[in-house]
C-alpha cells in the first residue's frame, strides 16, 4: 500500500539535518528537590541518519526528545541543528508522540493540515496535505473525525501530520508503543520506506530492542535514570532488513546484556 502511494506521491526534497547533542544535563523540580534525568549526554547525528535511543522505561529518553524538539530548555549543554543552537520549537523538527494526539474536533484532513495552517501557508499548499495523506494510505478517510479511526490509522494520520511539514529531523517518541503487534510490524516497514524515500534525520525512542535493530543505523543505549550513554552501537546491515538475520540476533543479545537482561536470553 505504501510502496504504491510512494510511487504516486509528489516528491518534496527534504534533506536531513545534522544534530549535535553537546553535554546535555537536565533535571526536574519535584517538591523543591532536583531530580536529575539526563547526565552529560553527548552524541552527534549525521544528516539522514536513523538513530534509535534505547533504555529502560522512565530513564529520560523522552525528555531528551522534548529538548531536541525545543519544547523545553536543558539545564546545561547545547543542542545544535545543522550547527545552529536549538532555542524553541520549529517545524523543521517535528515530533510524533506515543499517543497520536489528533485534535478530535478536526477531520483527518484538517489534522494533517495543522502545521501548514499554523505557519500560514495552507492556502497555497493544499496539495501537500493530500500528498501526505496519500503517503500513509488514508486519502479515503480525509473527512472522517478521529474517533472513527483505529489506533494504527490514528498513528498514520499523526505521521502524515508530521511529514507534511517536510521535517529535517523527525522525532519519534515510541510512536508504535501502543499498537498491536501486527500493526506495529507493518508500520515499522512503512517508517523505513518513508525515511529512505525522504532522507530526513530520524530520532526514535523505543524500548523494543528488536524494533530499534530493525529500523536504525545506530542504537544508543541509555542507563537507568539519570540517563547516561552506555553504548553507541552501529547496526551495519542493509535495508530492507530481516527479522531473522543472525547478525541482528547477536546485536540483540549484546544490547539485552547491556540492559542487564542477559539472564532472559
Amino acid at each position: 500500500m505504501v510502496a504504491h502511494a510512494l510511487a504516486e506521491a509528489v516528491a518534496y526534497p527534504a534533506v536531513g539535518a545534522s544534530l549535535d547533542v553537546e553535554r546535555i544535563s537536565h533535571a526536574f523540580d519535584i517538591d523543591g528537590n532536583a531530580l536529575p534525568v539526563l547526565e552529560d549526554v553527548s552524541f552527534s547525528v549525521k544528516p539522514g541518519e536513523f538513530i534509535a535511543l534505547l533504555g529502560p522505561s522512565g530513564c529520560g529518553k523522552s525528555t531528551l526528545l522534548r529538548l531536541v524538539a525545543g519544547l523545553g530548555a536543558p539545564r546545561s549543554g547545547v543542542l545544535r541543528e545543522d550547527g545552529d543552537p536549538v532555542t524553541g520549537p520549529f517545524p523543521s523538527r517535528v515530533v510524533v508522540f506515543q499517543d497520536p494526539t489528533l485534535f478530535p474536533w478536526r477531520t483527518v484532513w484538517n489534522n494533517v493540515a495543522l502545521g501548514l495552517e499554523a505557519q500560514g501557508i495552507l492556502e497555497s499548499q493544499r496539495q501537500r496535505v493530500d500528498a501526505a495523506l496519500d503517503l500513509v494510505g488514508l486519502s479515503q478517510f480525509r473527512n472522517a473525525y478521529p474517533h472513527l479511526l483505529s489506533g494504527g490509522m490514528a498513528q498514520r494520520v499523526a505521521l502524515a501530520r508530521a511529514l507534511v511539514n517536510d521535517p529535517k529531523i523527525l522525532i519519534l517518541d515510541e510512536p508504535l508503543g501502543k499498537l498491536d503487534s501486527l500493526t506495529r510490524i507493518t508500520m515499522q516497514a512503512e517508517i523505513v520506506a518513508l525515511w529512505q524515500r525522504k532522507g530526513f534525520t530520524t530520532l526514535l525512542v523505543t524500548h523494543d530492542v528488536e524494533e530499534a535493530l530493525f529500523l536504525a543505523n545506530r542504537v544508543i543505549v541509555f542507563s537507568n535514570r539519570p540517563a547516561r550513554i552506555k553504548a553507541d552501537i552501529a547496526v551495519d546491515r542493509p535495508y530492507p532488513r530481516h527479522r531473522g538475520d543472525p547478525k541482528l540476533a547477536e546485536l540483540r543479545r549484546n544490547i539485552l546484556g547491556l540492559l542487564g537482561l542477559d539472564a532472559t536470553w
Binding site: P91, V95, L114, Q119, N165
Partner: peptide
C-alpha cells in the same frame, strides 16, 4: 485542555494566538 495538544501545535510552528484560537477554544467548546 491537555498540554499534549499545545505541544503538538507548537512543534508544528503554532504561535500563541493560533494556540488560543485553534487549540484552546475548540477544545473548550
Amino acid at each position: 485542555v491537555s498540554n499534549a495538544y499545545y505541544d503538538v501545535a507548537r512543534t508544528l510552528g503554532a504561535k500563541p494566538f493560533f494556540l488560543v484560537r485553534k487549540v484552546a477554544i475548540p477544545a473548550a467548546l
